[in-house]
Each structure stands twice: as C-alpha cells, then as structure tokens.
C-alpha cells in the first residue's frame, strides 16, 4: 500500500482530502447546529450554474463556480428571509434555477464538456495541483473568517433574535456565514461533487456532536472524522476501482450508522443497569 504514496495523483488526493476535511469539519458544525442543511444544499446545487458558465466562457470551471456560489448564497439568504413565500419553497426554486442555468450553459458550449461528471460526482484521484492551491487559499479564508467572527457566529446560531437585540447586524452576519458555506462547497466539489457535497457538510459534524457539547471541540473532532474517513474512502475506491466520491460517502454513512447504533446499545445497557441497581 505504501508504494502508492509515491504517485503524485495519490499525494494530491490525500492533500485534497485533508484540505476538504478542514473546511467541512469547521463549517459543517455551523450548518448542523444552525439547522441550515437545506439552504446549504440549495447553494451547492445552484452553483452548478457557475460550472456551466465556466464551460461556456471557456475558463476553468472553478473560476465560474466561486463567484456563482457566492451570488447564490447572497440571493438565497436574502430571498428566503424577505420573500412572502415560505423559506424552504424559496430555496427549492433557486436550487433548481441554478442547476437549470448550468445545464443550458453546458448545452450552449460548443463541443463536449470533458470532465463534467467530476464536478457532479467528484473525483479526488484527478485533482490538479492548481485546484489544490485554490482549496488551500479558500481554507485560509474560511479559517480566518471563523477565527475573526467566532463569538458572533456562536451567538447568531444559538439565538439570532437576542443577538439582534444586542445590536449585532445579524442579517449581514447570516449572509456572511452563507458565503463561507459557499466557499466550503467550492473546496468540497472536487472531492465528492456537487450532488454529494451535503454529506460532507452534515455527517462529520453530526457524528462529532455525539462526543462533545463544545463547539470548538466539535470542529476538531469533525475534522478528524472527515480526514480519516475520506482517506479510508480513497484507499477503498482505489482498491475496488469504484468512484471515490460515492465511496467516501458510503464509508461516512457506514461509520455514522455504526456509532449511532453502538451508542444506542451502550445507552440501553446503562439504563437497564441503573434500573437493576438498588
């Protein structure tokens, strides 16, 4: 297995897995505790429009997806709060609008879109070096923003109304959080693809919640889970010759199931033990 490590595509894949775990470990915790999984899924899917735009303009699709995902985050965050229709309906509309735009852009692009599938389903084994640098830069932005706004984000997620009463511009802060989620999605696209991004944003964070009641520790544990599981997934996908993104998600779901059932059984034993004691 170790001789694999000398291949540069494997090294790139491992680096991508680590960079992705950092982003999704930190931001996934906010997505889970603020219960904004659906809007995050919406931003992820709508950003397909950016990939289509990249193809259409003949530039690296990653350059299309960064501004497009930020724009979707701002539009979704504003429309879902301000419009008269229910928030989830507004998200549903924008979600499909972005994807439809992407499909039209790809259709209008002359010729064949070569690695379209890697954006939809990810392929961590083909991450180019340039994308790694982009992921590294985005990770730096994400970590920096969370460091700066840690106290504000914690207050916002716990009690938005009270935080507003404290004079904090919560609406802007919420949009900022959504923009950081958008950047996280960009980091994750190459690893698992737009379709499966939401798994990386929810599963490691939900898992970490079972082990701690502290937000910072949740972030660390979820980075650890994300890292170990994606590397395992890469190994399995290489060994079995199956798609890497889907394999990572399967391993994540399997581990989550294992931990959930294991804890349930431990809890059950604890309760019956307590009942038996005098």
């Amino acid at each position: 297995m170790f001789e694999l490590l000398q291949y540069s595509f494997i090294q790139n894949a491992l680096a991508a897995a680590v960079l992705a775990s950092i982003a999704c470990g930190i931001i996934g915790v906010y997505v889970v505790v603020k219960k904004i999984v659906f809007i995050s899924g919406g931003i992820a899917h709508a950003s397909f429009g950016g990939i289509g735009l990249g193809y259409y303009l003949g530039i690296n699709p990653m350059f299309g997806v960064v501004p497009f995902s930020l724009l979707s985050a701002l539009v979704m965050g504003t429309v879902s709060k301000k419009s008269k229709i229910p928030e989830d309906s507004a998200i549903g509309i924008l979600w499909s609008l972005g994807m439809a735009l992407g499909i039209i852009f790809v259709y209008l692009t002359p010729g064949y879109a070569p690695d379209l599938m890697t954006y939809l389903f990810g392929n961590i084994l083909t991450v180019p070096r340039f994308d790694l640098y982009l992921m590294l830069a985005l990770d730096a932005v994400i970590v920096g923003a969370v460091y700066l706004f840690y106290k504000e984000f914690l207050a916002l997620c716990f009690d938005e109304e009270f935080t507003t009463v404290q004079g904090v511009p919560t609406q802007k802060l919420y949009l900022l959080l959504l923009c950081i989620i958008a950047l996280t999605i960009v980091v994750l696209i190459k690893v698992v693809g737009i379709i499966l991004v939401i798994a990386l944003l929810t599963i490691p964070a939900t898992l970490s919640r079972k082990f701690t009641h502290n937000l910072k520790q949740m972030m660390l544990i979820s980075i650890l889970f994300g890292g170990v599981i994606s590397v395992t997934g890469i190994g399995l996908s290489y060994a079995l010759d199956v798609p890497s993104g889907a394999t990572i998600i399967l391993v994540l779901s399997f581990v989550y199931g294992l931990v959930a059932v294991g804890m349930e059984m431990l809890d059950g034993r604890g309760v019956s033990g307590a009942k038996n004691s005098p």
């Binding site: 106290k151 914690l154 009690d159 935080t163 404290q166 009641h213 502290n214 949740m218």
Partner: peptide, 26 residues
C-alpha cells in the same frame, strides 16, 4: 430554544455582553 445546542452556561451569559464588547473584539 434547541437545548441540545453545544454551548455552555458561561458562553450563553457572555453573549449578553455583545452590545458592550463591540464587533470583532474578544
């Protein structure tokens, strides 16, 4: 409230200081 939220009593009470602390400050 979501009482499962990963926040301690101390962190909750500190959020009551935000109007005094100011933005981006510890």
């Amino acid at each position: 409230f979501d009482f499962d939220f990963p926040i301690s009593v101390w962190e909750v009470v500190l959020t009551g200081r935000m109007s005094h602390t100011g933005f981006l400050k510890k």
